[in-house]
């Protein structure tokens, strides 16, 4: 493996106040002592910071949003592959995972590896399917219903299926707690305008939010898992700071889930610990989260392990991590040249 240089294409380069996982994943990969890397950034917008962070991203290409269709995405990847000979693609946005799962076989035939969940794993963990998911895999989940119109939220209340307060969640991102119908109405409109339909209405579970980042090898084995509690949450619902926990019950939870689903790839579990010390799973994100570098710093380089698995290497499971390791997120004004902005916006490459 040594002296091997891999070309890895990575998205999620919006390293802003509500960051995507791209740059943190790249940091992990850059620290690998097993392989060198050339990082190809996949960007959607001209102002994503990643393309301008040259110590992390060697070259950036703009790509079409997956909402344009998988063929459009594929066409662009083929173009990039011709120039760069990509070895591995790591998509980091929830909205991309579906498209890349569908493309995985075709990419593989071109020599591009991915390490993604299967379509079945991806579909069954949708927020709207949580109740069934909980039943199948034996974990506690809140009642969740997918709705396509605001009237259905009124119906849910009338039929006493879900009462207030409740959570209004987007298909991919965004979650708001609504105390009453008026608030639910506002959040429904906000979320549906941004992420489309359906919108998921979820029972509100009282307690403390805790998270686990993990990596499954696709055969039921957990390669690594690190539990964390967000120490402060910004108004956008993102972690400002977080700390790794010594919490065997959360690790057991993650290992059980990965073994039961045979999860393949990165995963973030959002859990609520109730006052009676029970763990409810409120969401599964089918990718590594933006705070994954905390796991790297605590001793589990999950992005590196993911690349190794994608390229067909055996990876021994991590057995340990440093407890009480913290991260504090900060923002930083990077100084950029207008000519680089011009290049990315007119040529779509930088």
């Amino acid at each position: 493996m040594k002296n091997n240089k891999l070309t890895i294409a990575i998205s999620g380069l919006n390293n802003v106040d509500s960051p995507g996982p791209g740059i943190p994943v790249i940091r992990g990969i850059r620290e690998s002592k097993l392989f060198e890397s050339r990082i190809i950034g996949l960007a959607y917008e001209n102002l994503e910071p990643g393309p301008y962070m040259h110590e992390f991203v060697d070259k950036t290409y703009k790509v079409p949003y997956p909402s344009e269709g998988v063929e459009q995405v594929m066409e662009r990847i083929e173009y990039i592959h011709e120039l760069e000979s990509v070895d591995v693609i790591i998509p980091n946005f929830d909205s991309e995972i579906y498209a890349f799962i569908r493309l995985a076989d075709r990419l593989n035939r071109m020599g591009i590896r991915t390490f993604l969940p299967t379509l079945k794993q991806f579909e069954e963990r949708h927020k709207s399917n949580l109740p069934q998911f909980g039943k199948t895999h034996g974990v506690k989940v809140p009642q969740s219903v997918a709705v396509t119109s605001f009237e259905e939220i009124e119906d849910l209340k009338r039929d006493e299926k879900i009462g207030f307060p409740l959570m209004v969640k987007g298909k991919f991102y965004d979650a708001y707690k609504a105390q009453n119908l008026e608030q639910a109405f506002i959040y429904f409109n906000r979320i549906s305008a941004r992420w489309g339909l359906p919108v998921v209405i979820q029972e509100f579970i009282k307690g403390t939010e805790v998270n686990v980042v993990a990596l499954g090898d696709g055969n039921g084995q957990t390669i690594g898992a690190v539990p964390m509690r967000k120490q402060y949450i910004t108004d956008k619902g993102k972690a400002w700071g977080g700390i790794t926990l010594d919490e065997p019950s959360m690790l057991d939870f993650a290992r059980h889930l990965i073994s039961s689903t045979k999860w393949r790839g990165g995963i973030e579990l959002e859990l609520i610990r109730t006052p009676d010390n029970e763990l409810y799973m409120i969401e599964i994100n089918p990718r590594l989260p933006a705070w994954v570098y905390l796991a790297v710093a605590a001793g589990q380089n999950l992005p590196e392990a993911m690349v190794l698995l994608a390229t067909g290497n055996d990876v021994l499971p991590f057995t340990d991590y440093e407890i009480g390791k913290m991260f504090i997120r900060y923002s930083f004004d990077m100084i950029c040249d207008l000519s680089e902005f011009e290049k990315l916006s007119t040529l779509g490459e930088l």
């Binding site: 802003v16 959607y44 917008e45 790509v63 662009r76």
Partner: peptide
């Protein structure tokens, strides 16, 4: 006009 917000609606334009 180049969009200044992020993310904007369109990404790389498709044919």
């Amino acid at each position: 006009k180049l969009s200044a917000g992020m993310p904007a609606k369109f990404g790389l334009q498709v044919r």
